[in-house]
Amino acid sequence: MAVSDNLERPGPIPAAAGIGLRGPYHAEFISDSPEAAWLEAHSENFFAPGSIALTALERIRENYPVSLHGVGLSIGSADPIARDHLENLAELVERVQPGLVSEHLCWGSVGGYHLNDLLPLPYTEEALAHMVERIGQVQDRLGRKILIENVSSYMEFRNSTIPEWEFLASVAASSGCGILLDVNNIFVSARNHGFDPLEYLDAIPADKIEEIHLAGHSEQLFDDHSVLVDTHNAPVCAEVWTLYETLLSRIGPRPTLIEWDSELPPLTVLLEEAGKAQKLMDRAHELAA
């Protein structure tokens, strides 16, 4: 019997603002139980059975809805799915019983070697069929629907024939997965590649969007070229808040996560960012009423 079968735990992820659960915050969540609607953990950090991190997550899970967000499954790789990675994920999902499970619209390995990055695919019919088939493998093994998140990108392939937003919508339609829409990633990619982020937002079917990510990015100079890089080390910028508000006005409130992964601030800063997202969701609720 799985540990999860014995426990009364908070239920599904609410349509409210949550924050990313990172290691330095574990102790605070265990000892002080700060108010947060839900938490999202990076799956790979909890793969080791009995580890200090997993023990902490299980304690935190007793008090908070939790989603699991993978960064290393490399679904879009031409390599076969790494069975050990998928088995580790399945075991973790069984143990934690998360409200949502998500992965990325990306690849990261070739020939068994990993780049440990979220690399964009060429948006072709071949890649589309591949992603749909691979998401099916993952959903079959986990016995549940997963969400797929759009990534930030700094390159475009010449052989792409489908706009990214149409590709993402088609992946979801054909595989039955949901969409985790990262508004910051749309903003970053739109600025880097010169497309209209509103066109992207409008192209994603509302009923497929089951979670939203918000994060900070940074501007980096390479020679004289300015590139926005998805660094998750800063507050959400004003333009991304505006896009988020626009999205909410179309689709209504959705579980929304504040992601912050490096140069971590005190937990209160993340909770304040989540508070801003919550206010915008509350306003969307009122307008919809």
């Binding site: 780049l115 690399l119 700094y154 390159m155 475009e156 010169g194 590139v227």
Partner: peptide, 18 residues
């Protein structure tokens, strides 16, 4: 393989190398 548009291909590669 890369589009040389808003970000030149050589810069794209440097971003990912970095």
């Amino acid at each position: 393989d890369l589009v040389d548009k808003t970000i030149p291909a050589s810069i794209s590669i440097r971003v990912y190398q970095n």
